[in-house]
Amino acid sequence: MTATEGRAVPATGEEPPARRRRPGRRPSVPAWLRPAVWLPLVVMLAGLAALWQYGARRLPYLLPPLRDVGRSLLDNPGYYVHNALVTLGEAVAGLAMGFAAAFVLAVLTSEFPLVRRAVMPVATVLNVTPLVAVAPALVVAFGFGPLPKLVITGLICFFPILINTATGLRSVPREVLQVYRTVDASRVELLWHLRVPSALPFVFAALRIVFPLSVIGAVVAEMSASGSASGLGTAISVASSMNQLPVVYASILVLALMGVLLLSAVTVAERRALHWHDSTRD
């Protein structure tokens, strides 16, 4: 009857016959538990670790041994958790600000061509200006408190959300609009019932881009504000000035994990919100 019934059927080639399952059911053994899925990554990581250790032995002033990095993490977990939470807070709060501003402007630009003509050139210039260069000036302007960090993070997230959301709001198919125009739906009704839901896939595509960017923004802001007290960016600056290589690399590792965590959160949210959309179907 429908073409989508068999959507969730996994590749069953490697299964023992006893574990055959009904088509269309979720597999009882998740795909990622199969060696074919996780083994390549493990081999890759082991190879990288071996290479690292070799390098650390040859160049002890450039690379700390992995053991030292791990010990730094385990000896002082509170330090990393505290700084990670500070950076995470800046990243998420800045992203929220950037998102709110970009979303409202996207709605305005898609509804009013005049606003679009005024806003888009400015937004484009803002986008092509390297924020790393702007950050010190913003620190001078807003001080060493949290504000410049939020502003920088917000700015770095602003443009991708604006462009994607504006495109998404205009992505309603012509014939759908015609159906609702013949019943004289108001602009607000069109926006709420048609345009905003149609924009969601585009918004999520933007979020996938800006969640990692927000961490970059927070770290850049911390590094630019040389007197700031905490955050992983600050920790890296301080540790590298004191030549504490294990701390530098431990902080970098925590930052990377944070980015992965944020991206996974977006993916989970996307799968829930866009279950109807083609992009979430395997």
């Binding site: 198919p173 759908v176 159906v179």
Partner: peptide, 21 residues
């Protein structure tokens, strides 16, 4: 325009034009 405002008209376009969500 007045007919649309009073919902006198029903449109069936070439494609179903349904909202996928």
């Amino acid at each position: 325009a007045e007919a649309c405002a009073a919902k006198l008209i029903g449109l069936v376009p070439q494609s179903p034009a349904l909202l996928p969500w």
